[in-house]
């Protein structure tokens, strides 16, 4: 099932306090690409992947969008369904969603429009080999 809005509000709400892996505290709207990269570096077992948006479609679930990514060096195809207000962090750009207006309305979080070709930050488990 898709991720529902009820899972979203608190940590994407403007002003939400985020703890980086270094222990540093930042507001969600102040996060920068380097904060995620550095956090992954000091986290055991997690790695940052570059996930490029290759397609954005309407979902079969009303009120959702289906996002298609190619992920990491392997260029694996991964699809997820999210509400259009769900923010993703785009490298060098910051928070972006399919519906920046709705994100601003619900979370007061300033967002760019997420587009095909954007490279988002995602995480996966670090390979043990």
């Amino acid at each position: 099932p898709p991720i529902t809005s009820s899972h979203l509000p608190s940590h994407f709400m403007k002003g939400a306090i985020i703890q980086l892996a270094t222990g540093e505290l930042k507001r969600v709207e102040d996060l920068q690409t380097q904060d995620f990269v550095r956090s992954a570096e000091v986290s055991g077992g997690l790695k940052i992947d570059s996930s490029t948006v290759v397609d954005i479609q309407e979902s079969q679930w009303p009120g959702f969008v289906m996002l298609h990514f190619v992920v990491g060096e392997q260029q694996s195809k991964v699809s997820i369904e999210v509400p259009p207000e769900h923010p993703f962090f785009v490298y060098g750009q910051g928070w972006s969603s399919c519906s920046p207006g709705r994100t601003a309305q619900l979370f007061s979080l300033p967002c760019h429009r997420l587009q095909v070709g954007d490279v988002c930050i995602s995480i996966s488990l670090q390979s043990l080999n």
Binding site: Q19, V28, K77, I80, S122
Partner: peptide, 25 residues
């Protein structure tokens, strides 16, 4: 005087999607 209030703190990794491709057999 303002009483200190507890504030929720969220871990950084809760903000980014976990996009792990399913492993081929």
């Amino acid at each position: 005087n303002v009483e200190p209030r507890s504030v929720a703190v969220f871990p950084w990794h809760s903000l980014v999607p976990f996009l792990a491709p399913s492993q081929p057999d």
